[in-house]
């Protein structure tokens, strides 16, 4: 109900509603972007871009599902676009991010990662991107597998397989840190 109300007010130009949405979801979106990209700077840029685009479309905004799901999907699309651009320009891939995650923190850095998030982000860089997406959307966004299959334009069984392989790999990578 709160999100519905926030969207309502936001569409009518409320700065307070925009602020509330920003405060409510920035951490969630940053975490998803960091885990998917393995790069704090990139993740911050993506989340800022997602919120900026969101802020600019207030009166045209038509939500079919939840606000959280809409913003999560926006981050996902932004990451995919970035990957596509980088692959097109043969630049560094997003997977080459381990050293970036572990680099010293900048004073003007927006996101301050817990040790677990840093380790998780590093571990995730070893997974194929599609597996990363499935695990992140399932674990962090609580997205059902059929919805993930829609987003990945593939079958649920493929998504299931990506999920299983990804979890096993992640468990082995995090090894001593996860309590089985």
């Amino acid at each position: 109900m709160e999100d519905k109300l926030l969207i309502w007010k936001f569409k009518h130009g409320s700065r307070e509603a925009l602020r509330r949405i920003y405060d409510k979801y920035h951490s969630h979106l940053l975490k998803i972007a960091i885990v998917l990209t393995g790069n704090i700077d990139t993740a911050e840029d993506i989340v800022q871009e997602v919120f900026t685009n969101f802020a600019q479309t207030s009166k045209r905004l038509e939500l079919n599902g939840s606000l959280k799901s809409y913003l999560t999907t926006s981050v996902l699309n932004a990451v995919r676009n970035l990957r596509r651009d980088r692959n097109r320009h043969n630049a560094d891939t997003l997977e080459e991010s381990e050293q970036v995650v572990s680099m010293a923190k900048r004073p003007d850095q927006w996101a301050i990662l817990s040790e677990q998030l840093e380790n998780l982000s590093i571990a995730m860089t070893n997974l194929p991107y599609e597996q990363k997406e499935v695990i992140t959307l399932r674990m962090e966004a609580d997205m059902p597998l059929n919805k993930i299959a829609d987003l990945q334009k593939t079958s649920i069984s493929t998504v299931n397989a990506r999920y299983r392989y990804g979890i096993e790999k992640l468990r082995s990578l995090l090894n001593s840190e996860v309590k089985v």
Binding site: H26, S27, L30, V35, D108, A111, I112, S114, L117, N119
Partner: peptide
């Protein structure tokens, strides 16, 4: 769940 972040 434990992998959290805070913000500056």
């Amino acid at each position: 769940k434990k992998a959290t972040l805070s913000t500056n």
